[in-house]
Design a protein around this nucleic acid. Structure first.
Length: 175
DNA sequence: TAGGCCATCTGGTCCT
DNA sequence: AGGACCAGATGGCCTA
């Protein structure tokens, strides 16, 4: 994956160079053994050639391509930030198979159920297991309890723990 | 080899 | 106007 990222970054650098210098690719580049990246690079160069032809080598075509590459770079950075956030989330979710990286969907699902479990636990502790309005802490636990119930009116608190435990179990099994 | 997951590119839309 | 965000497309890598 690192190799891929490196290769793509290199490709981008090459693209930028091409844009700035308007180099034409050599015939060797169309070799049968072109890798994916090289193929894409070729396509990109072709695209640059076409756009430069059709737009009569005006700066418009170049500007468009430069802006495209710049937004690609921004998008890449944005996705990297998103991935960093996912990684940070992975690190705070307790799960069993630490050697196996959680996928994004697993991370989100596990996080959701973990939060639900913690919320239920906090509620139980803060209200002393008394329902709000019946001697429980109406100011703190009661409010929180009502808010929680509004959001989760159809789900049982114990279910979250069960869901979370099930997921942990599944990860342990490697499924 | 199929399916899951991922990174990247891209064009459209929204927001500031 | 330009950047952020989003979703679809594409192709690579890995695993069962």
């Amino acid at each position: 994956m690192k190799t891929k990222a490196r290769a793509l970054r290199r490709r981008k650098e090459v693209d930028i160079e091409d844009l700035h210098e308007q180099k034409t690719s050599s015939e060797e580049d169309t070799d049968k053994c072109l890798s994916y990246k090289e193929k894409r690079k070729g396509e990109n160069e072709e695209q640059i050639k076409i756009s430069s032809k059709t737009k009569s080598e005006t700066t418009n075509g170049k500007e468009h391509s430069v802006r495209r590459l710049e937004s690609n770079e921004r998008e890449r950075q944005r996705m990297h930030k998103l991935n960093n956030a996912f990684q940070a989330l992975r690190e705070v979710i307790p799960h069993v198979r630490a050697e196996k990286k959680l996928s994004k969907i697993e991370t989100l699902t596990l996080a959701k159920n973990y939060i639900n479990t913690l919320t239920a636990t906090i509620l139980n502790m803060s209200s002393g297991c008394l329902p709000p309005g019946e001697g429980g802490n109406v100011v703190n636990g009661g409010k929180l309890y009502r808010h929680y119930q509004q959001q989760r009116d159809e789900e049982d608190n114990d279910k979250h723990l069960e869901q979370y435990s099930t997921q942990i179990h599944n990860f342990r099994q490697g499924s």
